[in-house]
């Protein structure tokens, strides 16, 4: 459960940092003067949906770190056979990274209000992510054909379950980004609303890219070397 505890420590640090700014040491029973009361929320609050996405990403992060914890714990048993990483995954990784980059481009175009560039950027991000998904399914089929089936070995099982779960999250992102793209093509655009949507899609896409890179490192075995290194440092 080390990975999970590490993740929770990060979340805990974020919460602690946030709480440090909340005047937790104030003495509310002494404050009833109207001057102080107006200070409740003086900054224009961040859009609720953005905070919502941050919290959601926290939940998704917990989910994946728990799976990764399970991965390492299961790996300790003797029936674990490593699994070759299909070449295709490199292509897929590149696709997902460019998709994320395209959305980043869309974000900066949206910020400057250049609708003409925003649309192709969004479409590019969308298509690349869809290609990534198709590539992942292709990788599954290749592996299956090569005899690496789900129930054969725990390494295979984890590979399918983790890529599947990640794929589902990408699919969810595709739906939302698709809706944003449709809105970008609509005749009556509310620019502020659209900018926020593009912002959130980009954030989500970067996060899922980061998750994928970690998973990829896990499958390729680099993460194990890293863990071994940590173990050696600890002992």
């Amino acid at each position: 459960m080390n990975v999970t505890l590490l993740f929770l420590a990060v979340i805990g640090a974020i919460i602690a940092w946030w709480m440090a700014g909340q005047r937790l040491t104030s003495k509310p029973w002494l404050e009833a003067s109207p001057v102080q009361t107006a200070t409740g929320l003086e900054d224009p609050p961040a859009p609720a949906i953005k905070i919502g996405l941050y919290v959601f990403l926290g939940v998704v992060g917990a989910l994946f770190s728990l799976f990764i914890s399970a991965y390492f714990m299961r790996m300790a048993s003797s029936d674990w056979w490593g699994m070759p990483v299909p070449r295709l995954l490199w292509v897929n990784t590149a696709l997902l990274a460019t998709s994320s980059a395209a959305l980043q481009w869309a974000k900066s175009e949206a910020r400057h209000g250049r609708m003409g560039n925003l649309r192709p950027a969004l479409v590019a991000g969308l298509l690349l992510a869809a290609l990534f998904l198709a590539g992942q399914i292709e990788a599954w089929r290749d592996l299956n054909a090569a005899g690496y089936v789900l129930a054969d070995n725990p390494a295979n099982s984890f590979f399918y379950i983790l890529t599947g779960l990640h794929g589902l999250h990408i699919l969810g992102g595709l739906v939302v980004t698709g809706r944003t793209t449709v809105r970008a093509f609509a005749a009556d655009i509310a620019p502020a609303r659209l900018r926020l949507s593009v912002d959130l899609c980009t954030l989500y896409s970067h996060f899922m890219l980061a998750v994928w890179l970690i998973l990829f490192a896990l499958f390729a075995g680099w993460a194990n070397d890293f863990v071994d290194l940590c173990r050696q440092l600890l002992s």
Binding site: Q22, R23, L24, S26, P28, T37, A38, T39, G40, L41, P45, A46, A48, I51, G52, V55, F56, V59
Partner: peptide, 18 residues
């Protein structure tokens, strides 16, 4: 998610956390 974000962002004016 709804509950957490509501407490974070939807409080009445003057309702500090404390």
């Amino acid at each position: 998610l709804n509950y957490v974000v509501t407490v974070l962002q939807g409080r009445a004016r003057g309702m500090t956390l404390m």
